[in-house]
Amino acid sequence: MAVRVLAAGLAGLVAAAGLAACTPAPSGPPVAVLFPGAADDDWGASAEVLRRELADDGYAVEVRFAGDDIPRQLEQLREVLAAQPAAVVIAPVDATAIAAVLTPDAAGEVSVIAYDELILDTDQVDYFATFDHRAAGRLQAQALVDGLGLADDPDAGPFAVELLAGSGDDRGAQDAFAGAMEVLQPYLDAGRLTVPSGRTDLEQAAILRGSPATAADRVAELLAADVPLAGVLSPSDAMSGAVAEVLAAAGVEVVAPGARWSAAPLPPEGEPSATPTPPGATAPPPDATTPPHTDAAPDSAADAAHDRAAPASVVLTGGGSTLDGVRAVRNGAQTATVYEDPRELARAVASMVREVVEGAAPTVTQGATTDNGVRAVPTLLREPQLVATVEEARRVLG
């Protein structure tokens, strides 16, 4: 046993010596990365990609996580700025709180890059890197339109849909909803899409902090009111997952990836057709006093419910930077998602840091700036990816 321990110890020393010989100590400029979350979550995975990209080039990278603790991140920023690194990459816990610490005196010559969410109300933000959320909204809306067959069939519709949006104070949510409405508004104006809830602008459609429970409640209320819902525009996979559970509980299927919405199936030829029963409702027995094939008005709430067509299925979109939505598409539980690969954003920001430290203007999207309330910040926009078939989902998942 002692021999094995000694051998293992020697092997460890040799391996460590070899690693030290192959991996030089960081000699490049110091770079600080301040993220929400923790080392073992999605933020940690993104930070590791960013750290590794820079460390491989010899940069001395310090990564700190603040969870959802605003004061903690502000204190981290104070400490980092006191050391005056070459660059700081910040994904803010709170976009407005950072300005209290990120002052001209504190920032000095430090280059500041806002990551994923823009830091507001300060002129000390040099660059901003994020995904093109407006493009993501357009892709989500187009997936809804395609799933309903509106583009393929000029006579398709009208379809009842529900529009969900992220938090109204989130710039990304604002852009995504604006992009979605660029695609959907012509169909709304033409009457081919309807929104029975009346939530057709951001203020009405927004859901505080993107709460999945609130999204699920909205859809459940529509189903309980016997609305023949045919589609749900959801901006996030977390919302979509909660909505999918509500649909399943009501006996409503999600339109499969790559498929098109279809009405309730027709009965075999020669058999009389029947109006489908709304989800959760029980069809009332025929009224013996009403002759068949007449247009007599229903004389009860149950009869009225029976006469309203239930949706055969619902087109359900989604989006986000985790693989949950991609897996849902692969498994047929979600019609489509718009994937924002966090590794791609991390690699792009690593390139920006290198360029800034070397004294070059970093690569940003031509003509793209984002107003943070004080200045127009040069912005790098990464393109999101529509995943609308099982094959596409499998390719993303590898």
Rank of each mutant, 00 (worst) to 15 (best):
Ala312Ile: 01
Thr275Asp: 11
Ala263Gln: 11
Ala259Val: 08
Gly251Cys: 05
Gln334Val: 04
Pro278Ser: 04
Val364Arg: 11
Gly241Leu: 06
Arg343Lys: 13
Gly270Trp: 14
Trp261Gly: 10
Trp261Met: 15
Val255Gly: 14
Glu344Ile: 10
Ala350Glu: 11
Thr363Gly: 08
Val377Ala: 01
Ala312Met: 06
Glu245Gln: 13
Pro286Trp: 05
Asp371Lys: 03
Val315Asn: 09
Pro272Lys: 04
Pro291Gln: 12
Asp299Ala: 10
Thr322Ile: 06
Ala348Thr: 03
Ala360Glu: 07
Leu266Arg: 11
Glu269Tyr: 03
Leu381Ser: 08
Leu380Asn: 02
Ala264Arg: 09
Pro272Arg: 07
Arg330Ser: 10
Arg343Asp: 00
Ala238His: 01
Asn372Gly: 01
Pro276Asp: 09
Ser321Gln: 06
Glu340Phe: 04
Thr322Gly: 14
Pro265Thr: 01
Asp303Tyr: 04
Ala376His: 08
Val377Gln: 02
Ala263Lys: 12
Pro292Lys: 00
Pro291Lys: 15
Thr369His: 06
Met352Lys: 06
Asp371Phe: 10
Thr322Lys: 14
Ala336Arg: 00
Glu344Phe: 07
Pro276Met: 13
Leu323Lys: 07
Pro272Met: 06
Arg327Gln: 13
Ala304Leu: 13
Val353Ile: 11
Glu271Asn: 08
Ala310Met: 13
Thr365Ser: 14
Pro342Asn: 08
His306Glu: 12
Ala259Ile: 11
Ala350Val: 04
Ala283Ile: 03
Pro285Lys: 04
Leu266Val: 03
Arg375Gln: 09
Ala250Ile: 01
Ala283Tyr: 07
Val252Leu: 13
Glu245Arg: 09
Leu381Lys: 14
Pro286Ala: 09
Gly325Pro: 12
Thr277Ile: 03
Ala249Thr: 10
Ala336His: 00
Ala350Trp: 09
Leu323Thr: 05
Ser313Asn: 05
Ala264Tyr: 07
Thr379Arg: 10
Asp341Ile: 02
Leu380Glu: 04
Gly325Thr: 06
His306Cys: 03
Pro267Asp: 05
Ala274Pro: 00
Val364Ile: 13
Val315Ser: 11
Ser313Tyr: 02
Ala348Ile: 03
Leu345His: 06
Glu344Lys: 15
Ala256Ile: 03
Glu253Tyr: 10
Asp324Pro: 00
